[in-house]
Simulated scan of single mutants.
Amino acid sequence: MAEYGFYHLTRTPLEQALPKLLGRVLAGGGRAMVRVAEPARLEALDAALWTCPDPDWLPHGTPRSGHAALQPIWLTTEDAGPEGAPNGARFLFLLENTQSAQLAAFDRVLDLFDGGDAEAVAKARERWRQAKAAGHALTYWQQGARGWEKKA
């Protein structure tokens, strides 16, 4: 079972929070797959990761750029296959209320949601219930004054 973490964005937008989390994965020698809901959002996120200041280098690819196996970070609108992420990632980032039927293919799932969006919060609660029923180890993180704070 995957360790499934819910990340409640309350202080910074996704475009600022995501690069720092991805940077931590890369710094630890990991690989990540990032799933978004819409192709237009994928393109915007692709551009944002190339120009983010912190960390200043997040090597990544998309289906359009190809060569998934070479990409430390893979951005996609598609779910992983039964064999896992096309880049061999063990970290799965779920954005924009996306879900995955392949959670067991990952060591860790990070589900980021906007705390200022009531619909996103309600959908995150439903994903929490589903993940708990499936037996995943759940954690809940919320942005605080000093960064991410793990809540009970």
Rank of each mutant, 00 (worst) to 15 (best):
V25L: 03
V25I: 12
L26K: 00
A27E: 13
G29S: 11
G29M: 07
G30Y: 02
G30D: 03
R31P: 01
A32H: 00
A32K: 00
M33D: 00
V34P: 00
R35S: 03
V36A: 04
A37G: 03
E38W: 11
P39V: 10
A40S: 13
A40L: 12
R41S: 11
L42T: 07
E43I: 08
A44Q: 15
L45V: 11
D46G: 07
D46Y: 10
D46V: 08
A47Y: 06
A48L: 13
W50E: 11
T51C: 12
T51E: 15
C52R: 14
P53E: 15
D54E: 15
P55N: 09
W57T: 11
W57A: 13
W57L: 15
L58M: 09
H60G: 14
T62E: 04
P63K: 02
R64A: 15
R64C: 01
S65H: 06
S65G: 03
S65P: 02
G66E: 11
G66H: 13
G66L: 12
H67T: 09
A69P: 01
L70S: 12
Q71V: 03
P72S: 11
P72H: 11
W74G: 02
W74L: 09
E78Q: 14
E78R: 10
D79G: 13
A80F: 09
A80E: 06
P82A: 15
G84L: 10
G84Y: 09
A85D: 02
A85M: 04
A85I: 03
P86N: 04
N87Q: 13
G88W: 00
A89Y: 03
R90Q: 13
F93T: 02
L94N: 04
L95K: 01
E96R: 10
N97R: 14
N97C: 05
S100C: 06
A101S: 15
Q102L: 02
Q102F: 01
L103R: 05
A104F: 09
A104R: 13
F106D: 01
D107A: 13
R108E: 04
